[in-house]
Structures are given as structure tokens and as C-alpha cells.
């Protein structure tokens, strides 16, 4: 089981801020996890489209698409940051 978190525009588009998920065995990294979520369709397909600038953090560290996703991980999806 993994924990998924969504922030800012993604949280609003998806209508949830967090969920527990049990991805199938072929989900092994950030890229395949994103693809799996995209297959939910609707806002998921739209917001996680490949041309959208989505950032991903694994266990609170910024993560590249090839970063491994392991059982128990906390994975956050969010738009580019705009603080300061």
C-alpha cells in the first residue's frame, strides 16, 4: 500500500487531498504510477497528461520519473511551486 497526496490545483481537480492505493505489480516507479493514475480518466487524464508540468515527491524528496515506488511510500503530486 502507498499513500498518495495531492496539492493545490491537482487537489481541487481530483476532489481529494490524499488516498491509500494498492497499485498493480507493474507500477514500479514514478513514471508507471503516473500512467496508472492517468488511466482513471477525466481530471486524472487531463491533469497528469504528459505535457502538463506536474512535479512528484517521494517521501518528501523531489523525484524523477525513474524513481522507484515501494510499499509504504508517501508520494505527492503537485504543480510547479509558487511561494515566496
Amino acid at each position: 500500500m502507498i499513500t498518495l497526496l495531492y496539492f493545490a490545483r491537482l487537489r481541487e481537480s481530483f476532489g481529494i487531498s490524499s488516498e491509500q492505493a494498492h497499485p498493480p505489480a507493474h507500477v514500479v516507479d514514478v513514471r508507471s504510477l503516473t500512467e496508472w493514475l492517468r488511466q482513471r480518466g477525466g481530471a486524472w487524464q487531463e491533469e497528469l497528461a504528459q505535457n502538463r508540468p506536474v512535479r512528484v515527491a517521494v517521501n518528501q524528496d523531489m523525484a524523477a520519473p525513474d524513481r522507484a515506488v515501494c510499499d509504504g511510500d508517501e508520494i505527492a503530486f503537485f504543480p510547479p511551486v509558487t511561494g515566496g
Binding site: A8, R9, P53, F78, P79, V81, T82, G83, G84
Partner: peptide, 18 residues
């Protein structure tokens, strides 16, 4: 740093783009 700004304007609410 993960912060995100949302503005309330005359035209409605909008997330600020990076």
C-alpha cells in the same frame, strides 16, 4: 520549496503559474 499561491481576483479565483 513546496508552496502554492491561489489568488482571488475580480475575475474569480486562480492558481498562480510558476
Amino acid at each position: 520549496a513546496p508552496f502554492w499561491k491561489k489568488e482571488q481576483t475580480e475575475a474569480g479565483a486562480r492558481w498562480v503559474d510558476a
